[in-house]
Design a protein around this nucleic acid. Structure first.
Lengths: 205, 205
DNA sequence: TCTTTTTCATAGCGATCAATATAAAAATGT
DNA sequence: ACATTTTTATATTGATCGCTATGAAAAAGA
């Protein structure tokens, strides 16, 4: 059941946009923004540069689309855990577990695409780095919002520093990302996650 | 009191090697290996490319020397804390505190040079990334060694998973590095450090 | 002074970077 | 069949990449 409906006039594209975007995601995830060249991307997609530029506009916009796709697929477990788990504590537990699973998957683990994308970069790419930074901070804010809800619901004490607590678990996840790429064994990563949960605040009263 | 002693035959170098290395360290620290070009480096040093290559051999060797210098200066607090503090717990406490101080210093924080140097990179620079990875893992091993000593000295229980505990605190430090670069407030970073200490194992018996 | 040695600055190497001008190819509309 | 529209592939753009060949400059040794 392919949606075609009134195909436009010109020559049909040979490039499957979704498939090409997934290919770009994989390359950017492994090599980062600067490390994946347009030549690498077009070669992996099996197309020539003009097709890429017609479909995505620029390397920078392609990267942003790849980040969006990551957030909606491999990286969606954070938002889902925050939305679905009944308690903030269980949400954090699931985020830590799934982080380990996703980041350390496969023979050459890739960590988190947001954490390893472009923390340092050339001065001409500061816009890309700033966008990544904004996405990382947004993830912390999302966790904080869940913790704030937990305060209202009585799961966490009103005195809880929800911003710092969210930043703490985000820091652990970011560290898991780096160490997963460094090849640290999965059982060690799992113990890191378990250790982080020891710091969870005592329930109020 | 400059040490001259039998100056060799040729034209004296106009390049102060120590000063140039410090300049390279600063640039590599901020922009990473790929983000700091040879043109950037020579311009900041005030020399031309041949002088840089005569003094350091290649960009890659210059980077390694800059990493060594970092480990002996800005990044030396880890080794010193592990060697100087009377207990493993106090060593970790100091490492966390000094990490926050160093990583978040200045108007544009630079985080940790090892953690932000080249976690992702182009395929042709895997050697540099592997070297950085090795240095990060060595830092974990150093912490683990101090924890093993603490087990022998009775500070930590013999059942302690020292490898995972070391990896946990390394992960927090790596997360601090990323968030410092993202502009997270210093007081939040300090609370992250304090939260990590809550997970410290209870003393044996 | 003159040779030797080393470093210096000028200029440019081939390779690769992201991005495009051009025109043929492949579809629809008439 | 023929014009219109869009995408395609070929080939190339200027800029920048890390690096170096060349020869002048600046020191010491003879």
């Amino acid at each position: 059941m392919k949606k075609i409906g009134k195909r436009p006039r010109g020559r049909p594209r040979a490039l499957d946009r979704e498939e090409a975007l997934e290919t770009a995601l994989q390359l950017f995830w492994r090599h980062g923004y600067e490390g994946a060249s347009v030549a690498d991307l077009t070669a992996a997609m099996g197309v020539t540069p003009p097709s890429l530029y017609t479909a995505f506009g620029s390397k920078e916009r392609l990267y942003q689309e790849a980040l969006d796709r990551y957030g909606a697929s491999y990286g969606s477990f954070t938002a889902r855990a925050l939305a679905e788990e009944p308690t903030a504590r269980q949400a954090v537990e699931r985020i830590l577990q799934e982080s380990v699973a996703v980041y350390s998957e496969g023979p050459a683990p890739r960590g988190c695409m947001l954490a390893s994308g472009a923390v340092t970069c050339a001065p001409e790419h500061t816009k890309v780095a700033a966008d990544l930074s904004r996405r990382r901070l947004a993830a912390i804010s999302a966790i904080k919002a869940r913790f704030d809800r937990a305060v209202i619901e009585g799961e966490l004490a009103p005195s809880t520093d929800t911003e710092a607590l969210a930043a703490f678990y985000a820091a652990v996840v970011q560290g898991l990302s780096i160490q997963a790429r460094d090849g640290v064994d999965r059982d060690v990563l799992e113990t890191i996650a378990a250790t982080a949960l020891i710091a969870w605040p005592r329930p109020p009263a």
